[in-house]
Design a protein around this nucleic acid. Structure first.
Length: 471
RNA sequence: GCCCCCAUCGUCUAGUGGCCUAGGACGCCGCCCUUUCACGGCGGUAACGGGGAUUCGAAUUCCCCUGGGGGUGCCA
């Protein structure tokens, strides 16, 4: 019985987008579900594009989401000699060869082939060079890259856990570079070597890599390993409208969602559901529940379109499911940034509880309590709300009556100004927005009675009178 | 161009030959609850891309078409 080992192996060439994150998530979920090992491996063989900032960001995002790794993170850049040794072995065995074509020459010939209606791909010019020919090219000072010799005929196939048999003709796959002319190994090689050395048992990755699997597997066999890990290619995540997921269609980075007040558990929940669902059809699940339920076999095979609205709804569900004390700490940074020293913890905590069922993001919660931490004279009154207030004929009387009530009521009771309004012969339900506007600056917001109570008698009176005076 | 993958409401999906006059969720629209807004409850709108074939019977199996996505890199 071998231990299940999975790895998430991103290239540190930019920020992690939603698709990458879900791949990481599925790897992590499966590892945790079966008690396997989750490995983080940074595939930074492309030294030109890889950056330390990107490595830091990947680690930060995974940690923030709660996707902890058991091994790593490994850096492929630290093992270049291992990959190069493997490549040298392949050359010795005649499975790979030195290629003296330059990048631009290959590109040019490819374009020519396309023009003439021939399929592109390396034309094999350096495939069977004699030792003398190689020496001559080298003497010309030509750069040397290493190419893997792919079979001329036959087909390659492997079994994908969620797609079944995937087959392709070797004739459609040309010899590919495994070591660049600058001496660095390419993804296919490093990937194959590391999956062998790290004894990876399950490879879950994006469907965009499905074609490369044949090449990695061929390398794996060439390196003497006929066994192969279980492959499962996850469907892609599409942007709204079905196109590519891109910045055009709203946020694609996790940090943007964090800053907008999304909970990691909601993101994890939503992303997991994008392509998978539990047998019982439940949708709102905690991360622990997802780990318990996650089943690779239930991963869907068709690509999914990202729906920001549903994510937002789900975030609201997670906000409501959070114990108030945890919600308080989650919202705190958002409130601090907005209200700074004016923030009072006791009122803040009370406001968070009031806002818990009234928001889909932490930012919304923080914003709803703005009136509590704004000086009376600086309270901004929303134009539309004020407009609505002025349309109420008895607005002045309502404000007067409410002020009178607030000035004299028992502060230990619930502060309910409705009787005072009814005394004017008005239906409170229809005109409460007048008071909401005066107290909170908008016609909708946190419950009025609690808001007045939290604000305090003096402040509430001040606002009611200010609104009255402004009429 | 060539290769690979995919195809149920607008979106996420359930569904593996009869239980489907296709179920759930988001969104949207009503109603109820209600101090506003929400939450919650109830109800409604809306889909098996097209054509063949197999079968007593196809959303479910097979083929073709169409559509979408991916690949075709000295990116991963």
């Amino acid at each position: 019985m071998s231990q299940v080992r999975l790895r998430f192996s991103p290239a540190p060439t930019g920020s992690l987008h939603l698709g990458n994150v879900r791949t990481a998530l599925y790897n992590w979920l499966h590892a945790r579900h079966v008690g396997g090992t989750f490995i983080l491996r940074i595939e930074d063989t492309d030294v030109v594009r890889s950056t330390q900032e990107s490595v830091d960001e990947i680690q930060y995002v995974l940690r923030w989401l709660g996707l902890d790794w058991d091994e790593g993170s490994y850096l492929q850049s630290a093992r270049l000699d291992v990959y190069l040794a493997a490549a040298a072995r392949l050359v010795d065995e005649g499975l790979a060869y030195e290629c003296y074509c330059t990048e631009s020459e290959v590109k040019e010939r490819n374009e020519q082939a396309m023009h003439q209606g021939r399929p592109p791909g390396y034309d094999g010019r350096c495939r069977d060079l004699s030792a003398d020919e190689r020496a001559a090219r080298a003497a010309e000072g030509r750069p040397v890259s290493l190419r893997f010799r792919t079979p001329d005929e036959g087909h390659s196939s492997f079994t994908d856990l969620i797609r079944g048999e995937v087959t392709v003709e070797w004739s459609t796959i040309s010899d590919f570079v495994i070591v660049r002319s600058n001496g660095t190994p390419v993804f296919f090689l490093a990937n194959a070597v590391d999956d062998i050395d790290m004894q990876i048992t399950h490879v879950l990755r994006g469907e965009d890599l499905i074609d490369s699997t044949h090449r990695v597997l061929a390398l794996r066999r060439a390196l003497g390993h006929d066994d192969q890990p279980v492959y499962a290619h996850m469907p892609m995540i599409l942007g709204p409208g079905g196109g590519k997921l891109s910045k055009r269609h709203g946020s694609v980075s996790i940090e943007e969602y964090r800053d907008a007040g999304y909970l990691p558990s909601a993101l994890v929940n939503y992303l997991t559901l994008l392509g998978w669902g539990p047998e019982d059809g439940r949708e709102v699940l905690s991360t622990d529940e997802l780990v318990a339920e996650f089943e690779l076999k239930r991963v869907i095979s068709s690509s999914a379109t990202f729906d920001a609205k549903k994510l937002e709804w789900m975030n609201g569900e997670h906000i409501r499911a959070l114990p108030p004390s945890e919600l308080v700490s989650a919202v705190l940074p958002f409130a601090r940034i907005r209200y700074g020293d004016r923030l009072e913890i006791r009122r803040f905590e009370a406001a968070v509880r009031l806002a818990q069922v009234r928001a889909t993001t932490l930012v919304q919660i923080a914003e709803q309590m703005a009136f509590l931490f704004t000086p009376d004279d600086a309270l901004e009154i929303e134009a539309a709300s004020w407009e609505k207030l002025t349309k109420v004929e008895a607005a002045a009387d309502i404000l007067d009556a409410a002020a009178e009530f607030v000035a004299t009521c028992d502060w230990t009771d619930e502060i309910d100004p409705r009787p005072a309004i009814e005394a004017l012969g008005l239906k409170p339900g229809k005109v409460m927005h007048v008071l909401y506007t005066a107290i909170e600056g908008r016609s909708q917001g946190l419950p009025l009675f609690d808001s007045i109570s939290l604000l305090g008698r003096e402040s509430a009176l001040h606002r009611l009178r200010a609104a009255r005076a402004r009429l």
